[in-house]
């Protein structure tokens, strides 16, 4: 008897009875997000595309449609070079964050057995973000400069005779700086995926006679690929849109698309800035879509 009387209560609690509720009222939950994103993301992006076809004179911009700004971009070596610089720096930073980040993630995610310690180590990776960007850039100059710490040490140890000038205000310094800033975005997702690998799976591979290198290549690396992809997307989106690090560490010698936008907006060339903005957005879209093609994230996560 008691069982029979409690049955209706328990069925009321099941998720399937949330059905009618979910279909109507629950849509209101996403309304603020949708409104916000439409007003402040979709509409401005649409505006950007529209403005890129406006007519630009020295001090004025008029809504008369023209492709002049687009022609300027694709016929100028300066701008195409900026596009190429952006792609080159992106690829190099992507590679260096992977090379620096993957072993770190491997250590944190796989070799640190204590979960609390692993979390602590990941938090340590974030500590650089507790200092302001400006202060870090300021700190790199006495480090990387012609008479900076690295050059002084190298010379004191008689490894080099002349100071290495390439360390600061070059593309190298931009890449060093960006790797430092964005590495953590690579480490996090990879460490997360590595942490989810069942230790018994690795033990099983070892028991079947595979060497560590084999296990890494056939088990660990494929299973951590979704993390690499997510980390790669994070780093790519941030590096492609970069301008501050490039400007500060190259002494404005390295111009990425982001720097072009800053300059053009500064001189009130809105139409042209919009062209560069559209190109940058398309580039990011292609890169993200490319990453997502490599691994089926929906299946892996």
């Amino acid at each position: 008897m008691t069982i029979a009387s409690t049955t209706p209560d328990t069925t009321d609690m099941t998720p399937s009875n949330l059905g009618p509720l979910r279909s109507k009222a629950s849509y209101w939950l996403i309304a603020p997000g949708v409104i916000w994103m439409t007003l402040f993301l979709v509409v401005p992006l649409g505006m950007m595309v529209y403005v890129s076809f406006w007519s630009q004179t020295t001090f004025k911009i008029e809504p008369i449609l023209t492709t002049k700004s687009w022609e300027t971009f694709f016929s100028s070596d300066t701008y195409l070079n900026a596009l190429w610089t952006t792609i080159r720096i992106w690829l190099l930073v992507l590679l260096s964050t992977f090379v620096v980040g993957y072993p770190t993630a491997l250590f944190v995610g796989l070799f640190v057995k204590n979960k609390t310690l692993a979390t602590t180590l990941l938090v340590l990776c974030v500590i650089p973000f507790w200092t302001s960007f400006l202060i870090r850039v300021l700190a790199w100059r006495p480090m990387l400069g012609k008479e900076g710490a690295i050059n002084i040490i190298l010379q004191a140890l008689h490894i080099t005779r002349e100071p290495i000038e390439a360390l600061l205000f070059t593309e190298l310094s931009v890449i060093i700086g960006m790797t430092q800033i964005y590495c953590v975005f690579m480490v996090g997702p990879i460490a997360f995926m590595l942490g989810r690998i069942d230790p018994n799976v690795i033990e099983a591979a070892r028991d079947l006679g595979a060497s560590f290198w084999r296990i890494f290549r056939t088990i660990i690396l494929p299973l951590s690929m979704p993390g690499v992809i997510v980390g790669g997307i994070f780093v790519s989106v941030m590096v492609l849109g970069e301008f501050a690090t490039a400007a500060a560490l190259s002494g404005r010698k390295v111009n990425m698309l982001g720097n072009i936008i800053v300059t053009q907006v500064g001189s009130l060339k809105w139409a042209f800035a919009a062209v560069v903005g559209v190109i940058l957005t398309i580039l990011m879209g292609v890169v993200v879509a490319g990453f997502l093609r490599i691994v089926d994230l929906k299946r892996e996560l």
Partner: peptide, 10 residues
Amino acid sequence: VFQNFALFPH
């Protein structure tokens, strides 16, 4: 043979 099978998921 492991308790949770420990198959290679990929």
